[in-house]
Each structure stands twice: as structure tokens, then as C-alpha cells.
Design a protein around this nucleic acid. Sequence first.
DNA 1: ACAAAAGTGTTAATCTTACACCCATGT
DNA 2: ACATGGGTGTAAGATTAACACTTTTGT
Lengths: 230, 230
Amino acid sequence: MRPVQHIKLAVDAVVFGYQQQKLHVLLVQQKYGIMKGKWVLVGGFVKDEESLSDAVKRELAEEAGVKVDYMEQLYTFGDDVGRDPRFRVVSVAYFSIVNPKGFKLKADSDASDAQWFAIDELPDLGYDHKIILRAAQQRLSAKLSYQPIGFDLLPKEFAFSELEHLYSTLLDKTIDRRNFRKKILSFGFIEETGKMQAAATGRPAKLFRFNKQKYHQLVKDGFHFDVSLL
Amino acid sequence: MRPVQHIKLAVDAVVFGYQQQKLHVLLVQQKYGIMKGKWVLVGGFVKDEESLSDAVKRELAEEAGVKVDYMEQLYTFGDDVGRDPRFRVVSVAYFSIVNPKGFKLKADSDASDAQWFAIDELPDLGYDHKIILRAAQQRLSAKLSYQPIGFDLLPKEFAFSELEHLYSTLLDKTIDRRNFRKKILSFGFIEETGKMQAAATGRPAKLFRFNKQKYHQLVKDGFHFDVSLL
DNA sequence: ACAAAAGTGTTAATCTTACACCCATGT
DNA sequence: ACATGGGTGTAAGATTAACACTTTTGT
């Protein structure tokens, strides 16, 4: 009893990056079709024999030339029956984090044109992608407090002031520099590299790195990452 | 450019209830089809013009005669291309909580036969429903600590020992009775009913109720529910 | 009077918060 | 020498964790 059903299944990816002290999101401009000229999330229809996560990775590679470090399922948007004006599309949205310095975007492919946008300077988004993006932003803020994903947004070696700035910007909170540093260092998986940041001005900062192995070991031993409020 | 796609979209619901001091889950037995005789989660295909959440509610009503208080999207299972042996099915799983005393199950409809199963006495499940159920169980445990969903599992009026037993069973932790009571009462949204529990044996317990209004008010004022570990 | 479960308070230890001055570098 | 951002410690307050005896009821 194969059902008669005309719903199409798509995936969309919200990819976050951090640049110039600001959260950015990856968007592509549609060159053809009903949304011509509009900016939208990277995404597309799932192939019959392809897993959902493979579909996302394929679209990211095809449309933007991006390979992501960290990706997880965000939410499936399918309650608004008319979210795509052409026909019914249910979309599984993914949430991802990347260091933008890692690659060059496909800025002028045949079908699209990928670009980073600062989260506070977004263009008009097509479909319901603004809603998806907002959901992803909430997830990002929430995760920041209980998972060490902040480090995926920064370069491998970073100064404490950068980490601090990231947290205070994304969570929209003021942070006590001393308490923040104390807490983060007390975890035991942030280590000094021994290097210094070339300072534009002021005293040069020590550079640190996130030790993933140590972190995973600690988690196994029952550690819970928590940087709530501060 | 309508895509050529043969993926079917389904929904499945993991409905939890609490009975006889144990967590239960709602299952239906298939009477026909490839999974004949197997127990599975309540679920089915989404209709072309129906929202995902409406599809879940419809299936719950049709297959089990259940109306749920609390429901949220759990996860979309679509990475295993062969999870349904007939053809490709992607399923959006929902997570729900119910007080089983609220209704009589449709125990002998045409297509199915609904029943509660204690979580530690499960039958063999069809499809990948064991995996979906495990994911739901993890979500339940996690939520228990940071959202007041425990109260949805209990009767409207309950004794502290019941709440305590629920938490210690579902989180598999031992609880200090005094500290637990102190903490829960300190929230300010659990109130005495003035009634007493008819005790089988021992001193009768005071009955309490969860004041939803007060809880929502507190959340608005910045309150965060948290019953971690203890 | 005894068995069974409910109810209750105090203390030590830990974690969190608030807060201000000196340091290293470039101009 | 001054401007700029980096680095650091301590004390008060709040929260959590550990712990055992008395009360109420039914038999």
C-alpha cells in the first residue's frame, strides 16, 4: 500500500562563521527560478538513494564549495503547508559551524553565488528561511553555554579576549574577564601554545588552543561543559 | 523544475506515560502488511495538505484513541535509506507525554491494537523504532532536568514521594528526600492542595499540584527550571 | 507496641560573584 | 611618558551536599 503522496523533501543548511568579531551566516543568491535574485540558505532536494546528511554535504559542496567541521540536525519545517509557493516541500534543516578562513567560497557558479553575511546585516531571505535562521541562532546561543562549540568558530589558536568577545557578542551578556578566564582554564582542556599574538596595540596576548582529546576524555569521566551566563 | 523524487514522508510518535511507578510507552500492533504482528510506534504517512503535527495528532487519534497534552518534534530519521524495507521512507519522529489515566486505548480497531508497555518489558519493535524510542528516552531524561515535564507524567495531584520516585527511576539516580523537597518547593510553583493521600500504610502524604500559571509567570521573569542530578 | 512511610533543619564545603590595579608593548 | 589592551587575587555571599530523628497512621 504505497501511499499517494506528492510532498517533496528538501534539506537546508544554516552555516555559521565568525569573522571580524561578528557572527556571519552563509547564503546563496538564486540565479534562476521563482526566487531569482533572493538570498537563501544552502539547500536542495534530497535524492532518492541519498541520506539526509549526505544531501546537505553535497549541496554545501556544490552550491558554496564549503566543507563543514560540525553539523547537526536542527529541525524539520513542515507545518506550514505553503512554505514553498510551487508545491509542498518539507525541509529538514541542519545547523553547522565553520571557520570561514578554511576555504574560498564558490562565488560565481552557474546557479548561485555564495557569500557570508553578518547576522545584523542580512538581506531579505526567500521562502521561510528567516524563520529557519532564527531557530538556528537560538540553537547556537543555547549550545554555546553547554557545549564547547565556540572553539569551532575561532581560529585554532586564539587569545582569551577573542573568546570572551565571541561569548559576550553571541549571548549578548557582559562578561567579567577574570572570572571567565578562571572558569575556562579550570576546565583543563584549554592550553597555552606558548606563542603570542602580534598585537596591533597594547600588551601582546598569549595564544591558547582547545585540546579536543582532553575534552573528550573529561566528558567520558563525567565532565559537563557549562559556561552559563557568567 | 519539480524534482523527480520517490521518497515518502511519514511521522511517528513516541508517547510516554507513567503507571505503576514505571515509565511506559504506547505501541500498536500491526494487523496487516509487511510488519504484521510486530509492535511499532504510532505513525503513518503524511497527507499532501496536512501539517506534520496534524498528521501526528490524526494518527494518534485513529490508531490509539489518544489525545496528547504535550508534544514536540524529536528528530527526523532519514539517514538510513533502507529503514523501511518496502521503499524509501523518511520519518519525522515526535515526542510526547501523557497521563495514561486520561483515556481508554483503542484496543481493537481494524488495523491495529494499541497498548502500553513498561519500558523494561518491551516486545520486539518493527522498522527502526527501537532506535527512535531510545532517542526519545534520552530526550526525556534530558528534559526532566531542565523542564517541568515530570508533572505531565503524574496525576494532577501527587505526593512528593511519587515525584521523587519518578525522578529517581527515570534518571537512575538516588535522591536525598529532604534536599529534593526543599529545592522543588523553593521554586514556588508547587502548591499544597490541602488534601491527603489515602495511605495504604504509613503516615498519609500531603498532596501537591503544579501551578502552570505561576510557572509561566516565573519563566517570563527569567526563572530557569533546573533539577540536575541532586 | 510496632511497622511503614512522611516530614523536617543544621552545618560544612563548594561555587559564584564582585571588584581594581599593575604589566608589556608600540608610538 | 602615555595610550592601549593583557594579565592577575581575594573576600563575601549564595548554593549545594551530607546527614538522622520524630510524626502520623494502620494493624
